[in-house]
Design a protein around this nucleic acid. Structure first.
Ligand SMILES: [Zn+2]
Ligand SMILES: [Zn+2]
Ligand SMILES: [Zn+2]
Ligand SMILES: [Zn+2]
Lengths: 134, 134
DNA sequence: ATTGACCTTATAGTAGCTTTATAGTTTAAA
DNA sequence: TTTAAACTATAAAGCTACTATAAGGTCAAT
């Protein structure tokens, strides 16, 4: 299977596959005589794994870490679970931060109606005056 | 006032100030004979404005846009308010996406306790099998 | 023989800085 | 007075996870 077919199968762009190979996330495939990459089913599974991790918001470094655990399957899986726990708490703190931000933005927006000049805009004034409780 | 003092005053790094100048967000200050930048209070206010916008999650492009409105203070402020509305809805959709992600991650995590080998880890199995309702 | 679809590598761009490298200037201590 | 610390300058690279572009080689069909 060549790179285009693999790309279509998994739903990524060919450049992305080459990028993952370059980053050490996907093992370098064999080459045809003309230099074309030839992929196996295993590559397909590996690529799908990477993509599902990305959908879960894992960084390439975290994926790399998971792969290193997969390479040593008789270790206890505490490290895997811990990685996910860390990721969950990271996501949660992002949510918390964004919710606080939303509150701030909404209150800022409430300080202006649409019938003013820029000079008197409550939004700009609110930012400029810096009444921001961090 | 030199760049280091301004940086300390506003709480940014000197490189960040030079970066904003280069990006056209901060007007180029006068220079001493030795080439050192000399800042005024206006620069301090401008920099503080940028920083508060950044804290509100606005992009440099959005800040640039706000600055262009400030330069024309007798326009109606509808564009300012619209910019903020857009930003708020952007933040809200981020929150929604992250909340869905958190749910997915938590359910994935629940599929493993800590007493397994990597081979049998519920988390890794969950990712590999791809039972992900997008 | 030439078109078109596919493949190759290398390089640059995205956002918002941060880091590094290299060098010149000012200020204070020894 | 010398010298070292602290400050300034520019330019360029690094960060993340790709995406896009350029310039070219390969292959099947027309
Ligand atoms: Zn993470
Ligand atoms: Zn307004
Ligand atoms: Zn925005
Ligand atoms: Zn586990």
């Amino acid at each position: 299977m060549r790179i285009g077919q693999l790309a279509q199968l998994v739903g990524v762009e060919t450049q992305t596959i080459r990028f993952y190979e370059q980053q050490g996330l996907l093992p370098p495939p064999d080459r045809q005589d003309n230099g074309y990459r030839v992929y196996t089913e295993k590559h397909g599974e590996g690529l799908a794994f990477i993509r599902r991790c990305r959908i879960l918001g894992l960084s390439l470094a975290e994926i790399h870490e998971l792969q290193s655990y997969q390479d040593d399957p008789h270790q206890p899986c505490t490290a895997v679970n811990a990685l996910l726990d860390d990721h969950i708490s990271h996501v949660r703190s992002q949510i918390t931060a964004l919710q606080a931000l939303e509150k701030q933005l909404v209150s800022l927006r409430a300080s202006c109606n649409d019938d003013r000049e820029v000079e008197a805009c409550g939004v700009l004034a609110g930012i400029s005056e810096g009444n921001m409780h961090q």
